[in-house]
């Protein structure tokens, strides 16, 4: 591509679009990160996201309150996540199979719930007008004139980071994910910790989904998450289970999503499919590097991830 083509892309709106594109996957990914840190692999992120999207939409239309709608979305997706928790933690079903089933179930359920809501406009979520900051030249437009969810998602990442690193509950969660037998031997409730983590992950995925249906798009269409849940899953691995890298990865993957649209507009001759593939390609690369033992440890994959826990004795 030439310099002239690039310079025709205005940077400030691009960054603004990037932050908005990154928010849903960041929300879903930070939730999944907590789930995986507790040693559970929930592949149902896509299904929980779309359930959150439709629940949020229904709540928004019924209550006309965009804030209540977000809570509804979180609750709806958390309930779906608890189905997964019931299957994997109580009935000891296989996590991978249950997660995939959850995605398929969520896609179908959301289509059913959303039947009467196609083509309706949800109440608008206002953009924040932060004094001074929003009026900054460039930065004001790029970074400081978004809706509250953009900032909330960043705050959530910070909170998760603090929780995991500095609190005792966070330490117990990491311990459960690292070695559930040892945690059990010390008297920690492995199952309870995991069920709570799964519910939290569901709520976060629900928020991410509702962000799509209420703010980014904003409309309800069937299957509207279009793979965002899978990107969020890939993002957790890409971030090697570290919260701040989730932000980095979300902006990178979000940037790719935005860029592929922008590049089409300005007529760059790279097939967009390559860009659409790239988050997954990057994740596959990370996974390949990870599969060697030493790198696995250095990437800090939770030791008990995806291993079923049977309490003994």
């Amino acid at each position: 591509m030439t310099g002239a083509e690039l310079s025709s892309i205005a940077l400030a709106p691009l960054i603004a679009a990037l932050m908005i594109a990154a928010t849903p996957i960041m929300l879903a990914a930070i939730g999944e990160l907590v789930v995986e840190k507790s040693g559970v692999l929930n592949l149902g992120v896509e299904g929980m996201m779309i359930t959150g999207a439709v629940c949020g939409f229904v709540f928004a239309v019924q209550t006309s309150n965009p804030y209540l709608a977000m809570l509804g979305a979180a609750a709806g997706a958390a309930v779906l996540a608890l189905v997964f928790a019931l299957l994997t933690q109580v009935l000891m079903a296989n996590q991978v199979a249950s997660g995939l089933a959850l995605t398929l179930f969520g896609l179908g359920l959301s289509a059913l719930i959303g039947q009467g809501y196609v083509g309706i406009q949800p109440p608008r979520t206002p953009k924040l007008d932060i004094p001074v900051l929003s009026d900054l030249p460039f930065l004001g437009r790029a970074v400081f004139s978004h809706d509250y969810m953009v900032y909330l998602s960043l705050a959530l990442v910070g909170a998760v980071w603090y929780f995991l690193k500095y609190t005792r509950a966070g330490l117990i969660l990491r311990a459960v994910g690292e070695n559930h037998d040892a945690a059990h031997a010390l008297g920690y409730r492995v199952r309870r910790v995991r069920i709570l983590a799964i519910a939290f992950g569901g709520a976060c995925a629900g928020l991410g989904g509702a962000y799509l249906s209420l703010i980014r798009v904003p409309q309800w269409t069937e299957g509207m998450t279009a793979g965002a849940g899978w990107i969020a899953l890939a993002l957790v691995v890409f971030a090697s289970w570290r919260p701040w890298r989730v932000v980095l990865g979300a902006y990178l993957f979000g940037g790719i999503l935005v860029l592929q649209l922008t590049l089409q507009v300005v007529g760059v001759r790279i097939p967009v499919e390559y860009l659409a593939m790239s988050p997954y390609l990057i994740t596959i690369l990370v996974l390949v590097i990870m599969s060697s033992g030493r790198a696995r440890a250095s990437l800090a994959a939770p030791g008990s991830l995806n291993r079923p826990f049977f309490a003994s004795g």
């Binding site: 070695n179 040892a182 945690a183």
Partner: peptide, 20 residues
């Protein structure tokens, strides 16, 4: 003191002790 150590490899010594 357990036969099969009830320790967490990815956590440091102080964190392991705090958990117990």
């Amino acid at each position: 003191v357990f036969q099969h150590f009830s320790l967490f490899d990815a956590l440091d010594v102080a964190e392991n002790i705090a958990l117990g």
